[in-house]
Each structure stands twice: as C-alpha cells, then as structure tokens.
C-alpha cells in the first residue's frame, strides 16, 4: 500500500494505492488521520485501490468520524470497482459522500 498527499483548492487530497488489508491498513489509518489532522476538507482518492478489506473500510469510517467531530468534511472520490464492492456489501456506500473524480470533490 502506498499513499500520496497533496493540496488542491483548499482541500487535502490523499490518494491511496494498492491493497489495503490487515497488513497495510494500520499505515492507511495513520495517513488518513494525519490528513484529517490538517484541519481542511479531506478528499480520499481511491482510484488506485485494488483491494480493500473490512479493516481498511474501518480506517475510512474512523477518519470520517474524526473529520465530522472537527467540523470538517471527508469525501471519497474516484472509487475503484474493488473498493466500491466492499462499501456496497458493507452498506456504507450511502454513509460516505462519493464523487466521480477528484476534481469534482475539491
């Protein structure tokens, strides 16, 4: 799993990449919470996420909850087929704000 953080139009865009599973989700969680910690609207780019399991989804939920507590927004963008499958199976596709691409989200 890799991740990349950049600023775009007042928002923090964090792009996750690769497999997010039990092995890699602690790193993803750390990166997501750090992005939220910057106090700006957060956009999570999931275009290059090939696989995500329940622990990865739990990290996204935790980041969303933390953002909401701080009065920030956290949106998902360009959600890959694999990530969308899990969000739907977990019935979380309605919980997150989901944008078709990063440009729409920022």
């Amino acid at each position: 799993m890799m991740h990349e953080v950049k600023d775009a139009g007042g928002a923090v865009v964090i792009a996750l990449e690769g497999d997010i599973d039990l092995q890699t989700s602690p790193k993803a969680r750390e990166a997501l919470l750090a992005a939220v910690g910057r106090g700006k609207p957060v956009v999570v780019d999931l275009a290059k996420v090939s696989y995500i399991d329940s622990s990865g989804v739990a990290s996204l939920v935790e980041a969303l909850q933390t953002a909401k507590k701080g009065g920030q927004t956290l949106a998902l963008a360009a959600v890959s087929e694999g990530a969308m499958r899990v969000l739907k199976l977990a019935r979380l596709d309605a919980v997150f704000t989901i944008h078709a691409n990063v440009d729409d989200a920022v």
């Binding site: 399991d53 499958r85 899990v86």
Partner: peptide
C-alpha cells in the same frame, strides 16, 4: 468475475479471524 471478487474478500476476512 463478481463472485470471484466477493469470495476472495470473504475468505480473506475469515483468515483475518485466525491471524488476529
């Protein structure tokens, strides 16, 4: 295809149970 992806996820989740 879709069933393949889903079953992989389910088996992964079940194995996590053992690992954790």
């Amino acid at each position: 295809h879709e069933m393949t992806e889903q079953v992989i996820l389910a088996v992964d989740e079940a194995c996590q149970n053992v690992v954790r």
